[in-house]
């Protein structure tokens, strides 16, 4: 298509009609009829479009895509493997953590039970000691009481003798006569016992 502008500012489009109809063999028949249908496909264009499309499809299928898809697959596998590895490490970590927690709690329980038994033992021991001490104290108190009673009895007996002697002597001196010791003794005992 060429464009010419005349001096009067008129625009003239000149199309290469003649060449066109001469060169395009498929088209010349239609041009003779004067009707060109732009919707009906031309056989030569169908041929080349099909040829090149099938060539591209075959190349894509067998030559071009396989290495790229293999590369993508490889990368995806690697990422998946790395993710799985990370996942297993995570699992290990979780397991170790739970093990650790279990151990800690077991140890704590054990410590608690040890403390409890120790406390029980200590309590029992203390109770025993207390009982022993109580018994000893009771014994000591009993023996002390006995000794005390003995001492008092002794002292009483001694005092009884001394007081008798003294009273007999004093009465003898007062009345100037020997009093019968034996006879007076019964009177003194009666006085002291009353």
């Amino acid at each position: 298509m060429t464009i010419q502008v005349t001096l009067d500012n008129e625009v003239v489009f000149r199309y290469a009609e003649d060449e066109h109809s001469e060169e395009d063999g498929a088209h010349s028949e239609e041009a003779d009829e004067g009707i060109v249908n732009p919707v009906i496909p031309e056989i030569n264009e169908i041929f080349w479009a099909a040829l090149f499309f099938f060539a591209l499809w075959a190349l894509m299928k067998w030559v071009l895509l396989p290495p790229l898809m293999a590369g993508r697959e490889e990368r995806a596998n690697k990422i998946r493997a790395a993710r799985d590895a990370a996942g297993s490490v995570d699992a290990d970590l979780g397991e170790a953590t739970s093990n650790y927690d279990a151990k800690i709690s077991a140890a704590r329980e054990e410590a608690n039970s040890i403390v409890a038994t120790a406390r029980e033992e200590a309590d029992a021991h203390r109770r025993e000691l207390q009982a022993a001490a109580d018994a000893e104290i009771a014994d000591l108190r009993a023996s002390a009481d006995g000794e005390l009673a003995q001492a008092r009895a002794n002292a009483l007996n001694q005092m009884r003798g001394d007081v008798g002697d003294l009273a007999v002597d004093a009465a003898g001196k007062v009345i100037g006569a020997d009093l019968d010791r034996q006879a007076q003794q019964s009177i003194i005992d009666r006085v002291l016992n009353s």
Binding site: D24, P38, N44
Partner: peptide, 22 residues
């Protein structure tokens, strides 16, 4: 004139005419 193009290869062949579309 705006959608049809002359063949520049195999000009005379109806089946193999190679134009700009090809």
């Amino acid at each position: 004139n705006i959608v049809e193009w002359p063949n520049f290869l195999f000009k005379d062949s109806e089946l193999f005419g190679f134009n700009k579309i090809g």
